[in-house]
């Protein structure tokens, strides 16, 4: 057993560590551009302006930048998420009417800890405790689509405006799709046994109490997520760097440009069966945009890849009948396409 003194000492160190790191983080982030320039042009002595130099500079600058952002955001989101749990979210959503329920469910979908492996228990837990089907769907659409990794990468590679557009259009899609599914009264397409079982609602004591434990969850989130996605980021940015200097600027204009109207539905159709996480797909999308793909089409592609994945939807077959699965995919895909068309029109 640890003595109380030892514990508080240990907790102090966990608590102050992020505060000590933050200034270093900031300095590194601010000077990263100069550091990578210095490294490429001075230390490696590469000539400015040629393709290979620009590709390497791109890689050496973008990888640490995205990783820095990722560590910070995942840490903060990890702490924020420790205040939420599906069980608490369910309690909040109980008895909420359709539209308000959809809005709240979508918002909570962003902050509630979620992994695709818990989609089914979550669906059952929500529906069986009386939360309307449409509200449950709003949650299930928002949770995977608007994840912190996507937001970090969009912010890092495209800037805050694109990140904001992604989050807000994602919210609109999840609110509206859930609302529509609720209005269509599709309960008959839920597997019959679902409504026959009653989910237990025993009082579970809050697991996490102290603030130091919340910080601990921040560390755990960083460890788990960064160790899982760093390789996708490196490879994704690597592909981006390779294309950066070599693929002609207008390469994608004819296929994914604004004027190719069919590019939006095509991007969504290709995106749905593609199973990739945000970390792998966004650096590649950045190259597409750089080479002339329009923002609307690229946004639609990203949303389809991240938010609608065929393998995850097939898991839901255990609790949903096929018509509902198709309606679900259809509504969300139409929502994504609308966003794509809209941005191609106004940007």
């Amino acid at each position: 057993m640890k003595s109380p003194l030892e514990i508080s000492h240990f907790e102090n160190y966990k608590f102050y560590l992020p505060l000590i790191f933050l200034p270093f983080w900031l300095l590194l982030y601010i000077y990263l551009d100069s550091i990578s320039n210095y490294f490429v042009y001075e230390i490696l002595g590469m000539a400015k302006g040629i393709h290979i130099t620009e590709s390497i500079r791109f890689f050496i600058y973008e990888v640490p930048k995205v990783l820095l952002l990722l560590v910070l955001i995942v840490f903060v989101v990890g702490i924020i998420r420790s205040f939420f749990s599906p069980e608490k979210t369910r309690k909040v959503l109980e008895g909420k009417p359709l539209l308000i329920g959809n809005i709240m469910a979508s918002g909570l979908g962003i902050v509630t800890p979620f992994c695709s492996c818990s989609a089914i228990p979550l669906f059952l837990g929500f529906v069986e405790s009386g939360i309307p089907l449409g509200v449950t769907f709003s949650f299930l659409i928002a949770a995977p689509m608007i994840n912190e990794i996507a937001v970090v990468l969009l912010f890092g590679l495209f800037g805050w405006k694109t990140a904001l557009i992604y989050v807000s259009t994602g919210l609109v899609i999840s609110i509206f799709s859930g609302w529509l599914i609720g209005k269509l009264k599709l309960e008959k397409y839920v597997a019959d046994w679902v409504y026959q079982t009653k989910s237990g609602n025993i009082e579970i004591e809050g697991q996490i109490i102290s603030f130091s434990e919340r910080i601990e969850t921040g560390y755990t989130a960083v460890r788990e997520i960064v160790s899982k996605v760093w390789i996708y980021i490196v490879v994704g940015i690597g592909v981006g760097a390779a294309a950066h200097g070599y693929v002609p600027e207008d390469f994608m204009v004819s296929v994914m440009g604004k004027d190719a109207w069919y590019s939006v539905p095509l991007a969504v159709l290709i995106g749905i069966p593609l199973y990739s996480n945000a970390a792998g797909i966004i650096p590649v999308v950045q190259v597409l945009i750089e080479k002339g793909a329009s923002l609307g089409t690229s946004l639609a592609f990203m949303m389809a890849v991240i938010g609608l994945s065929l393998p995850e939807t097939i898991i839901l077959k255990k609790v949903l009948k096929l018509p509902l699965i198709f309606i679900f995919i259809g509504i969300v895909a139409s929502g994504i396409m609308t966003v794509g068309f809209l941005f191609n029109m106004i940007m």
């Binding site: 069980e87 837990g125 579970i204």
Partner: peptide, 11 residues
């Protein structure tokens, strides 16, 4: 799954 649900947890 149905047994698990009886305990009231979703994760």
């Amino acid at each position: 799954l149905q047994e698990i649900m009886k305990f009231g947890i979703m994760m």
